[in-house]
């Protein structure tokens, strides 16, 4: 019989579990129910007791590794914490969120346990045996995999399960002791991109995709990068959308072209960028095929403004394409949104 451990950790504030962890809890509950397996949930946090109140009140054994050393994400401490939780539970399947914190350590923990790991899991299914679905080649190929070997670690991509929202708050938490190695790394904090305001908003409802067309010559034969920048920033401010961009646009910095100052490589989506998850997406001035369009693989409702209705970003990929000049349309949209706020 399978035995499942879900690993969770605190968010940046330390006072709550992060959303991705709660999604992993949902996945654990579902899988345990389907396999009729034992379920345990492990917490890594400075003060795990407080966080346990976010977790199911029954049906799962709760364990925690607590202490100031776990207030921050760090390889040595997090790996030791996860290892201790695994050794305490002896699970056959370990589920964890693919947060930056656990992505850093999960493979090593699997190795320490003599187990194996698969990551970027987008769903867990199978009837006779556990089968997990994940992406290869930067979201361009999808595969269902299975493993005979145990323990099997599965790192779940954010957004693939709903965050746990069941009854909480009464179960006891077992504290698991950890012996830490000598620490050679100190975490001193966070740094936001140096250029301009933060434009990456993972929790936003909408992704706004700016393509290289914004900095190309417009019908009057001129480049209007400043105006493009103002329109994009205006739209982001009015909608709270997150900003994604194509590789060709973020790469322009090195070529002496007019570039949009608030864009960095962190904004890049697609083949060699990120594939964020948002409910809606609006692409503007984008043109590209499969390698680029994977950038909005996980966008729910997609619309595009493009002068070419047959372009790869639009045909078969968007729900609606407006054949129009994005400069004109976004200016009007911003005006309407501004008027609505006023």
């Amino acid at each position: 019989m399978e035995s499942i451990l879900v690993l969770t950790h605190a968010d940046e504030t330390g006072s709550a579990l992060n959303n991705a962890s709660l999604e992993a809890v949902t996945a654990g509950l579902e899988l345990a129910s389907r396999l009729n397996a034992q379920l345990a949930i492990g917490i890594v946090a400075a003060d795990a007791t407080a966080l346990s109140k976010c977790l199911p009140s029954e049906g799962a054994r709760l364990l925690a590794v607590s202490g100031e050393a776990f207030a921050q994400a760090r390889y040595a401490t997090d790996a030791a914490a996860c290892e201790a939780l695994c050794r305490a539970v002896q699970p056959t399947i370990v589920l964890a969120p693919a947060s930056s914190r656990f992505t850093r350590v999960a493979a090593s923990v699997a190795h320490r346990l003599g187990g194996f790991i698969d990551t970027h899991i987008s769903s867990i299914g199978g009837t006779d045996r556990v089968e997990a679905t994940r992406w290869f080649y930067r979201q361009r190929v999808e595969a269902a995999i299975s493993r005979d070997a145990r323990p099997w670690f599965l790192l779940l991509d954010a957004g693939t399960y709903a965050a746990f929202a069941g009854a909480t708050g009464t179960a006891q938490v077992e504290q698991v002791p950890v012996e830490l190695p000598a620490l050679r790394t100190m975490v001193s904090g966070f740094r936001a991109p140096t250029q301009g305001a933060q434009t990456i908003r993972p929790d936003a409802k909408m992704l706004f995709v700016a393509g290289a067309g914004w900095t190309k010559k417009q019908p009057d034969g001129q480049v209007h990068a400043t105006e493009a920048g103002e329109l994009i920033v205006g739209f982001l401010a009015a909608t709270g959308a997150s900003l994604g961009s194509s590789k060709s646009l973020v790469d322009q910095g090195g070529e002496g072209n007019s570039v949009l100052p608030f864009l960095t490589h962190l904004n890049q989506i697609g083949q060699t960028g990120s594939t964020p998850r948002h409910a809606k997406g609006l692409s503007t001035c984008c043109h590209g095929e499969e390698p680029h369009v994977v950038g909005w693989r996980f966008i729910g409702d997609r619309r595009a403004i493009s002068l070419d209705p047959n372009c790869g970003w639009t045909r078969g990929k968007a729900d609606v394409v407006y054949v129009a000049d994005a400069f004109e349309v976004i200016a009007k949209v911003n005006a309407l949104l501004g008027a609505a706020k006023a």
């Binding site: 194996f116 698969d118 199978g126 089968e131 290869f136 979201q139 361009r140 190929v141 999808e142 595969a143 269902a144 995999i145 299975s146 493993r147 005979d148 070997a149 693989r297 997609r302 209705p309 639009t314 045909r315 078969g316 990929k317 968007a318 729900d319 609606v320 394409v321 407006y322 054949v323």
Partner: peptide, 20 residues
Amino acid sequence: NGLSYVSVSLPKQQRTTRVV
């Protein structure tokens, strides 16, 4: 290492695009 592939495929995400 006990890994087996159940299926490998291209994602089917063809949408019906309304062209305005």
